[in-house]
């Protein structure tokens, strides 16, 4: 596959500027939602608790109870902060940290998934539809590149979905950061004897820099992988449809069917959250990489499920491309 053709496809996606305009629109919606959204109660609670621990009163109390930290915990309102018997299996996080992550990233992840899915379908439609609607497919299929002209389109589409999602994620994160900043306890200092004591015991009741970035980047990677699979699936469907309206219809129907079945399974078996499809993964996004839903069968199971979905999408896409290469024009 020639890189020159991939560049051509990316250029065609950018002009006429429908895609950049939609990207800007999504970004505007995201920032507006974040700006007008509710304050994260977990952030407030943790900040208040931390302020108590680090206050003169907290330090004095800890020095008095240094040999018995559990007594210290009973003297201060720390029940929401930390419970050593409840740690997340994926990250070894305390309860507060786990809840904070879920709430913080959920605000970013849900719109990112919806918008990424819409962009995936749109990019597919533009990539395949332009030639189909202008009757160029036959002419291009008879060129040296032949029916394999769809491969540069696929590569360009994957790049576009990746870049658009990354841009949306980074700019939304920046928006959220500007709005609430990183919480006070985010970059914790060891100037508090109680916290020093907890960390020595390798217990992390608070949001840590490392966990925060690990969690954020892994979540972004998972969303990117899921969207790449979704894009592949949409590409496979639209490629097989004789015209674009039917391609869009097919893609949308599949999404609705998947969400309906996944939603039904979730409501019918709430104790066993369904994650075996794209829709199932989307509906359980708030449980990813946490034990909040109590659904983890194995560690990092969401990551493994996404890998399986990606493999499935690759197989479907491969079959679709193979069929297209044998198709009469």
């Amino acid at each position: 596959m020639k890189r020159e053709l991939v560049v051509w496809e990316i250029k065609k996606l950018l002009f006429p500027p429908l895609l950049p305009l939609i990207l800007l629109l999504f970004l505007g919606i995201d920032l507006m939602t974040l700006w007008t959204g509710r304050e994260n109660p977990e952030v407030r609670r943790q900040a208040e608790t931390l302020a108590v621990i680090r206050s003169e009163e907290g330090i004095r109390l800890f020095s008095q109870t240094e040999k018995d930290p559990q007594r210290f915990e009973t003297l201060l309102p720390l029940e929401d902060l930390y419970a050593s018997d409840f740690t997340d299996r994926d990250f070894g996080l305390g309860r507060a940290t786990s809840a904070y992550f879920a709430d913080f990233f959920q605000e970013l992840a849900i719109p990112l998934m919806i918008q990424g899915a819409i962009l995936s379908l749109l990019i597919t439609v533009v990539l395949i539809g332009t030639e189909r609607e202008t009757d160029m497919e036959k002419m291009i299929a008879s060129s040296l590149t032949g029916r394999r002209f769809v491969y540069p389109k696929l590569a360009a589409g994957l790049v576009a979905v990746f870049v658009c999602t990354l841009l949306l994620a980074l700019l939304s994160f920046l928006g959220l950061y500007i709005k609430i900043g990183l919480p006070e306890f985010f970059d914790i200092r060891m100037d508090c004897p109680y916290l020093h004591h907890m960390m020595k015991a390798e217990l992390y009741p608070y949001v840590r820099q490392l966990s925060f970035w690990q969690y954020g980047l892994l979540l972004l990677l998972m969303i990117q992988m899921l969207l790449a699979g979704f894009f592949g699936l949409m590409f496979a469907i639209v490629l097989q449809c004789p015209d674009i309206p039917r391609g869009i219809g097919g893609g949308v129907l599949l999404v609705i069917a998947d969400l309906s079945v996944s939603g039904f399974l979730r409501d019918y078996y709430p104790e066993k959250t369904w994650q075996g499809s794209f829709g199932g993964m989307y509906l359980t996004i708030r449980f990813w990489l946490t034990d909040k839903g109590g659904t983890d069968v194995i560690r990092y199971q969401e990551f493994l499920v996404i890998l399986c979905l990606l493999l499935l999408a690759t197989l479907v896409l491969k079959a679709s491309l193979h069929r297209f290469e044998k198709k009469e024009q």
């Binding site: 051509w8 332009t130 202008t134 036959k138 002419m139 060129s143 040296l144």
Partner: peptide, 30 residues
């Protein structure tokens, strides 16, 4: 295919392209 040139009955083109740009794209495909 590299020795075939084809003009279909209905010649499709990108409306926003100039002839030079259109031919450059087709040359890349060829």
């Amino acid at each position: 295919r590299e020795i075939v040139g084809y003009l279909p009955q209905k010649y499709g083109y990108y409306r926003s392209f100039t002839p030079r740009k259109m031919l450059r794209y087709m040359a890349a495909l060829q």
